[in-house]
Amino acid sequence: MMMKWKRWALATGVLAVSAMAQAAPPSAAMLSNACAGCHGTNGGSAGPSMPSLASQSKEAIVEAMKKFKSGERPSSVMGRLAKGYSDADFAAMGEFFSKQKLHATTQVVDAAKVKKGASLQESNCGRCHLEDGREGKDDSPVMASQWLPYLQIQMEQYLSGKRKMPEKMKEKVDPLSKDDIDALLHFYASVK
């Protein structure tokens, strides 16, 4: 009986004032929906300098947020925002975005570069950026369908030393030419 009364009261708003006290802590969706203004609904970005978060692994999201929070990864607003969340919040967000399906983008890419990138990716990047970049090993990010300008900005930050490259990545990237890297980015941008 109590339960029924409570449900009725909630449904009709009688408990509007006390509902506040009863509210559950922010859910994964509550935390993650707030990100969508900049990263797109369910983390599918339409903005060329903003990454899609949809289908990233939980580990990748948690690692990225921790590095934004500590300042290890350079950012404009992300570092300031990350400081507003706990590790448990990051895990909840990671859980939420990992469940969203890959956000396929259609973008202008150079066909010759895509072809070249396709031939380079398996041996150079494929151990961590799995399935043509549609998946990531451990905390490696999903690369497939990310916007080319976003990928170029990140690579520029890696190469200039502003963003620290993981050791394994550095071993692979160091021997590559600028054209090779450019081709790889075009390739990943083209994968759906």
Binding site: K6, R7, W8, L10, A11, G13, A19, M20, Q22, A23, A24, P25, P26, S27, M30, L31, A34, C35, G37, L81, D89
Partner: peptide
């Protein structure tokens, strides 16, 4: 509220 469920505290940006 319309489903008679518990509300969730806000988190906003």
């Amino acid at each position: 509220l319309m489903n008679g469920k518990e509300t969730t505290e806000m988190s906003g940006i």
